[in-house]
Protein backbone atom coordinates (compact mmCIF):
# COMPACT_ATOMS: atom_id res chain seq x y z
CA UNK A 1 0.00 0.00 0.00
CA UNK A 2 1.27 3.40 -0.98
CA UNK A 3 0.91 5.05 2.39
CA UNK A 4 3.17 2.49 4.05
CA UNK A 5 5.85 2.27 1.40
CA UNK A 6 9.20 3.83 2.22
CA UNK A 7 8.94 6.26 -0.68
CA UNK A 8 5.64 7.57 0.67
CA UNK A 9 7.33 8.21 3.98
CA UNK A 10 10.09 10.02 2.15
CA UNK A 11 7.59 12.28 0.45
CA UNK A 12 5.76 12.99 3.69
CA UNK A 13 8.96 13.97 5.45
CA UNK A 14 10.06 16.15 2.53
CA UNK A 15 6.64 17.79 2.31
CA UNK A 16 6.76 18.59 5.98
CA UNK A 17 10.15 20.29 5.87
CA UNK A 18 9.89 21.90 2.42
CA UNK A 19 12.31 21.83 -0.51
CA UNK A 20 15.63 23.59 -1.05
CA UNK A 21 16.62 25.21 -4.32
CA UNK A 22 20.27 24.42 -5.00
CA UNK A 23 20.89 27.41 -7.28
CA UNK A 24 19.31 29.76 -4.75
CA UNK A 25 21.42 28.39 -1.90
CA UNK A 26 24.62 28.84 -3.89
CA UNK A 27 23.64 32.43 -4.68
CA UNK A 28 22.84 33.21 -1.07
CA UNK A 29 26.13 31.89 0.25
CA UNK A 30 28.14 33.65 -2.46
CA UNK A 31 27.06 36.92 -0.84
CA UNK A 32 28.67 35.98 2.49
CA UNK A 33 32.03 35.90 0.76
CA UNK A 34 31.64 39.52 -0.35
CA UNK A 35 31.35 40.81 3.21
CA UNK A 36 34.50 42.73 4.01
CA UNK A 37 35.70 42.00 7.54
CA UNK A 38 38.27 44.53 8.70
CA UNK A 39 40.09 45.73 11.81
CA UNK A 40 38.24 45.13 15.06
CA UNK A 41 35.62 42.96 13.40
CA UNK A 42 38.36 40.77 11.96
CA UNK A 43 40.12 40.37 15.32
CA UNK A 44 36.88 39.48 17.05
CA UNK A 45 35.98 37.02 14.32
CA UNK A 46 39.38 35.31 14.37
CA UNK A 47 39.41 34.94 18.15
CA UNK A 48 35.84 33.70 18.20
CA UNK A 49 36.72 31.17 15.50
CA UNK A 50 39.67 29.92 17.60
CA UNK A 51 37.33 29.44 20.54
CA UNK A 52 35.03 27.37 18.31
CA UNK A 53 37.60 24.93 17.00
CA UNK A 54 37.21 21.23 17.79
CA UNK A 55 40.88 20.41 17.36
CA UNK A 56 40.81 17.04 15.71
CA UNK A 57 43.01 14.05 15.16
CA UNK A 58 41.32 11.00 13.70
CA UNK A 59 43.98 8.74 12.32
CA UNK A 60 44.75 5.07 12.60
CA UNK A 61 48.23 6.03 13.72
CA UNK A 62 47.10 8.18 16.67
CA UNK A 63 49.02 7.44 19.87
CA UNK A 64 48.71 8.66 23.46
CA UNK A 65 51.72 10.86 22.76
CA UNK A 66 50.13 12.48 19.71
CA UNK A 67 46.90 13.05 21.62
CA UNK A 68 48.80 14.57 24.54
CA UNK A 69 50.51 17.07 22.27
CA UNK A 70 47.17 17.93 20.66
CA UNK A 71 45.76 18.58 24.12
CA UNK A 72 48.63 20.92 25.00
CA UNK A 73 47.99 22.85 21.82
CA UNK A 74 44.29 23.04 22.66
CA UNK A 75 45.11 24.58 26.02
CA UNK A 76 47.65 27.02 24.69
CA UNK A 77 47.40 27.45 20.92
CA UNK A 78 50.25 29.95 20.77
CA UNK A 79 52.59 32.12 22.87
CA UNK A 80 50.74 33.81 25.67
CA UNK A 81 51.60 37.19 24.12
CA UNK A 82 49.05 36.73 21.35
CA UNK A 83 46.15 36.58 23.82
CA UNK A 84 44.40 33.70 22.08
CA UNK A 85 41.52 31.85 23.72
CA UNK A 86 41.56 28.11 24.23
CA UNK A 87 39.85 26.00 21.63
CA UNK A 88 36.45 24.49 22.35
CA UNK A 89 37.42 20.84 22.38
CA UNK A 90 39.75 18.15 21.22
CA UNK A 91 38.19 15.48 19.07
CA UNK A 92 39.62 11.96 19.14
CA UNK A 93 38.72 8.31 18.62
CA UNK A 94 37.14 6.49 21.63
CA UNK A 95 40.32 4.56 22.42
CA UNK A 96 42.15 7.87 22.89
CA UNK A 97 39.60 9.46 25.22
CA UNK A 98 41.27 8.32 28.45
CA UNK A 99 44.66 9.54 27.20
CA UNK A 100 43.13 12.87 26.32
CA UNK A 101 41.52 13.06 29.75
CA UNK A 102 44.85 12.38 31.41
CA UNK A 103 46.57 15.04 29.30
CA UNK A 104 43.87 17.68 29.73
CA UNK A 105 42.92 17.08 33.32
CA UNK A 106 39.67 18.69 34.41
CA UNK A 107 38.38 22.21 34.75
CA UNK A 108 40.31 23.63 31.80
CA UNK A 109 37.21 24.51 29.81
CA UNK A 110 38.46 22.45 26.88
CA UNK A 111 36.03 19.62 26.22
CA UNK A 112 36.84 16.12 25.04
CA UNK A 113 34.80 15.10 22.06
CA UNK A 114 34.91 11.56 20.76
CA UNK A 115 33.62 10.22 17.53
CA UNK A 116 31.72 7.00 18.18
CA UNK A 117 29.09 4.72 16.64
CA UNK A 118 31.54 2.91 14.33
CA UNK A 119 32.79 6.20 12.88
CA UNK A 120 32.99 6.97 9.97
CA UNK A 121 30.78 4.36 8.28
CA UNK A 122 28.44 3.54 11.13
CA UNK A 123 28.22 0.04 9.67
CA UNK A 124 28.18 -1.92 12.93
CA UNK A 125 25.28 -3.42 14.88
CA UNK A 126 23.40 -0.85 16.93
CA UNK A 127 24.34 -2.69 20.12
CA UNK A 128 28.02 -2.31 19.30
CA UNK A 129 27.62 1.34 18.44
CA UNK A 130 25.78 2.09 21.68
CA UNK A 131 28.39 0.20 23.67
CA UNK A 132 31.07 2.33 22.04
CA UNK A 133 29.24 5.50 23.04
CA UNK A 134 28.89 4.35 26.66
CA UNK A 135 32.55 3.38 26.81
CA UNK A 136 33.69 6.75 25.49
CA UNK A 137 31.50 8.59 28.01
CA UNK A 138 32.76 6.34 30.82
CA UNK A 139 36.35 7.14 29.82
CA UNK A 140 35.63 10.84 30.20
CA UNK A 141 34.24 12.15 26.91
CA UNK A 142 32.16 15.33 27.31
CA UNK A 143 30.77 15.17 23.81
CA UNK A 144 29.96 12.36 21.39
CA UNK A 145 30.08 12.79 17.61
CA UNK A 146 27.86 10.09 16.11
CA UNK A 147 27.18 9.22 12.49
CA UNK A 148 23.65 8.62 11.24
CA UNK A 149 22.64 5.47 9.42
CA UNK A 150 22.90 6.78 5.85
CA UNK A 151 22.02 3.40 4.42
CA UNK A 152 18.70 3.45 6.25
CA UNK A 153 18.08 7.06 5.25
CA UNK A 154 18.62 6.44 1.56
CA UNK A 155 16.44 3.34 1.78
CA UNK A 156 13.64 5.54 3.13
CA UNK A 157 13.66 3.96 6.57
CA UNK A 158 13.48 7.24 8.46
CA UNK A 159 12.04 5.76 11.61
CA UNK A 160 15.14 3.56 11.90
CA UNK A 161 17.44 6.55 11.46
CA UNK A 162 15.57 8.59 14.03
CA UNK A 163 15.17 5.77 16.55
CA UNK A 164 18.88 5.08 16.41
CA UNK A 165 19.68 8.73 17.07
CA UNK A 166 17.28 8.67 20.02
CA UNK A 167 19.00 5.57 21.36
CA UNK A 168 22.39 7.30 21.15
CA UNK A 169 20.97 10.35 22.96
CA UNK A 170 20.03 7.99 25.78
CA UNK A 171 23.44 6.31 25.76
CA UNK A 172 25.17 9.70 25.95
CA UNK A 173 23.79 10.43 29.38
CA UNK A 174 25.25 13.79 30.41
CA UNK A 175 27.48 14.06 27.35
CA UNK A 176 26.43 16.40 24.56
CA UNK A 177 25.72 14.82 21.20
CA UNK A 178 26.74 15.89 17.71
CA UNK A 179 24.87 14.13 14.93
CA UNK A 180 26.93 13.76 11.77
CA UNK A 181 24.73 13.68 8.67
CA UNK A 182 27.63 12.90 6.30
CA UNK A 183 26.26 15.31 3.73
CA UNK A 184 28.30 14.02 0.81
CA UNK A 185 26.57 10.67 1.05
CA UNK A 186 23.12 12.27 1.29
CA UNK A 187 24.01 14.18 -1.87
CA UNK A 188 21.09 16.58 -2.28
CA UNK A 189 20.23 19.70 -0.29
CA UNK A 190 16.68 18.35 0.06
CA UNK A 191 18.08 15.24 1.78
CA UNK A 192 20.33 17.34 4.02
CA UNK A 193 17.42 19.49 5.15
CA UNK A 194 15.22 16.45 5.81
CA UNK A 195 17.98 14.64 7.71
CA UNK A 196 18.63 17.76 9.82
CA UNK A 197 15.01 17.72 10.97
CA UNK A 198 15.07 13.96 11.61
CA UNK A 199 17.95 14.52 14.00
CA UNK A 200 16.71 17.74 15.60
CA UNK A 201 13.35 16.22 16.49
CA UNK A 202 15.02 13.81 18.95
CA UNK A 203 18.13 15.57 20.25
CA UNK A 204 18.31 17.92 23.22
CA UNK A 205 18.91 21.68 23.44
CA UNK A 206 22.67 22.16 23.32
CA UNK A 207 23.24 19.13 21.11
CA UNK A 208 24.61 19.71 17.62
CA UNK A 209 24.13 18.64 14.06
CA UNK A 210 27.32 18.26 12.07
CA UNK A 211 28.04 18.15 8.36
CA UNK A 212 30.50 15.37 7.84
CA UNK A 213 33.13 12.98 9.07
CA UNK A 214 35.94 14.48 7.05
CA UNK A 215 36.53 11.00 5.66
CA UNK A 216 34.74 11.43 2.32
CA UNK A 217 35.50 13.50 -0.74
CA UNK A 218 33.19 16.41 0.00
CA UNK A 219 32.90 17.93 3.45
CA UNK A 220 31.61 21.17 4.89
CA UNK A 221 30.72 23.78 2.30
CA UNK A 222 28.98 27.11 2.74
CA UNK A 223 26.05 25.59 0.86
CA UNK A 224 25.39 22.63 3.10
CA UNK A 225 26.21 24.76 6.15
CA UNK A 226 23.47 27.15 5.00
CA UNK A 227 20.90 24.39 4.51
CA UNK A 228 21.59 23.11 8.02
CA UNK A 229 21.54 26.49 9.78
CA UNK A 230 18.32 27.36 7.93
CA UNK A 231 16.90 24.13 9.37
CA UNK A 232 18.21 24.96 12.85
CA UNK A 233 16.58 28.40 12.66
CA UNK A 234 13.24 26.97 11.52
CA UNK A 235 13.34 24.31 14.25
CA UNK A 236 14.22 26.88 16.92
CA UNK A 237 11.46 29.28 15.90
CA UNK A 238 8.94 26.44 15.81
CA UNK A 239 9.88 24.65 19.04
CA UNK A 240 12.20 26.91 21.04
CA UNK A 241 14.84 24.18 21.01
CA UNK A 242 18.23 25.67 20.16
CA UNK A 243 20.46 23.18 18.38
CA UNK A 244 24.13 23.85 17.63
CA UNK A 245 25.95 23.46 14.35
CA UNK A 246 29.34 22.01 13.49
CA UNK A 247 30.72 22.16 9.96
CA UNK A 248 33.63 19.75 9.73
CA UNK A 249 36.30 18.98 7.18
CA UNK A 250 37.51 21.23 4.41
CA UNK A 251 37.68 24.49 6.40
CA UNK A 252 41.37 25.23 6.33
CA UNK A 253 41.76 29.00 6.14
CA UNK A 254 40.85 31.86 8.43
CA UNK A 255 39.08 33.57 5.55
CA UNK A 256 36.82 30.52 5.09
CA UNK A 257 36.08 30.41 8.81
CA UNK A 258 35.11 34.11 8.87
CA UNK A 259 32.78 33.57 5.92
CA UNK A 260 31.08 30.69 7.78
CA UNK A 261 30.70 32.98 10.79
CA UNK A 262 29.10 35.67 8.60
CA UNK A 263 26.59 33.02 7.52
CA UNK A 264 25.83 32.30 11.18
CA UNK A 265 25.55 35.99 12.05
CA UNK A 266 23.11 36.69 9.23
CA UNK A 267 21.04 33.52 9.53
CA UNK A 268 20.91 32.55 13.20
CA UNK A 269 21.94 35.82 14.78
CA UNK A 270 24.12 36.73 17.72
CA UNK A 271 22.98 33.91 20.01
CA UNK A 272 24.79 31.37 17.84
CA UNK A 273 28.11 33.25 17.75
CA UNK A 274 29.44 31.18 20.64
CA UNK A 275 31.15 27.83 20.96
CA UNK A 276 28.15 26.60 22.91
CA UNK A 277 26.28 26.61 19.60
CA UNK A 278 28.80 26.68 16.78
CA UNK A 279 32.00 24.70 16.24
CA UNK A 280 34.52 24.10 13.52
CA UNK A 281 35.73 20.52 13.12
CA UNK A 282 39.22 21.10 11.82
CA UNK A 283 42.89 20.48 12.36
CA UNK A 284 44.86 22.82 10.11
CA UNK A 285 42.43 25.76 10.52
CA UNK A 286 43.77 26.67 13.95
CA UNK A 287 47.25 27.54 12.71
CA UNK A 288 45.92 29.77 9.94
CA UNK A 289 43.75 31.59 12.47
CA UNK A 290 46.83 32.07 14.67
CA UNK A 291 48.85 33.27 11.72
CA UNK A 292 46.22 35.87 10.86
CA UNK A 293 45.99 36.97 14.49
CA UNK A 294 49.77 37.34 14.64
CA UNK A 295 49.63 39.35 11.43
CA UNK A 296 46.96 41.66 12.84
CA UNK A 297 49.25 42.28 15.80
CA UNK A 298 52.60 42.68 14.08
CA UNK A 299 51.50 43.79 10.63
CA UNK A 300 53.53 41.07 8.92
CA UNK A 301 52.88 37.44 8.11
CA UNK A 302 55.10 34.92 9.87
CA UNK A 303 56.32 31.72 8.28
CA UNK A 304 54.12 28.69 8.96
CA UNK A 305 56.90 27.02 10.96
CA UNK A 306 56.62 29.68 13.65
CA UNK A 307 53.43 27.94 14.75
CA UNK A 308 53.50 24.63 16.53
CA UNK A 309 52.63 21.40 14.76
CA UNK A 310 53.14 22.99 11.35
CA UNK A 311 55.78 21.54 9.12
CA UNK A 312 55.08 23.58 5.98
CA UNK A 313 57.62 26.06 4.84
CA UNK A 314 57.87 28.39 1.91
Amino acid sequence: MLAKSPSAALRRLFDAVGPVDAVGIEERVAKYGTRSIKKHAKLWGLKTAVSMVDLTTLEGKDTPGKVASLCRKALQPHDAGLDVPRVAAVCVYPAMVRHARRALGTGTGVKIASVATAFPSGQAPLKTRLAEVRAAVADGADEIDMVINRGAFLAGEFATVQDEIAAVVEACGPAALKVILEVSELETYDNIRAASFLAMQVIRPGDFIKTSTGKTSLNATLGNNQVMIDAIRDHYLATGVAVGMKPAGGIRTAKQALTFLVAVKETLGDAWLTNMRYRFGASSLLNDLLRQLAKEKSGAYQAPYYFSEAAESY
Binding site: S36, A41, R233, L237, K265, E266, G269, D270, A271, L273
Partner: peptide
Protein backbone atom coordinates in the same frame (compact mmCIF):
# COMPACT_ATOMS: atom_id res chain seq x y z
CA UNK B 1 7.59 32.78 27.95
CA UNK B 2 7.80 34.78 24.76
CA UNK B 3 7.90 33.00 21.40
CA UNK B 4 11.46 32.24 20.35
CA UNK B 5 13.04 34.97 18.24
CA UNK B 6 16.47 35.48 16.79
CA UNK B 7 18.77 38.30 17.90
CA UNK B 8 20.36 40.35 15.14
CA UNK B 9 22.28 42.74 17.35
CA UNK B 10 25.67 44.34 17.70
CA UNK B 11 27.73 41.44 18.99
CA UNK B 12 29.87 41.41 15.87
CA UNK B 13 29.46 44.68 13.95
CA UNK B 14 31.43 45.06 10.73
CA UNK B 15 33.90 47.91 10.60
CA UNK B 16 33.54 50.37 7.71
CA UNK B 17 35.11 48.95 4.55
Amino acid sequence: RPAPELIFGDLWPFDPA
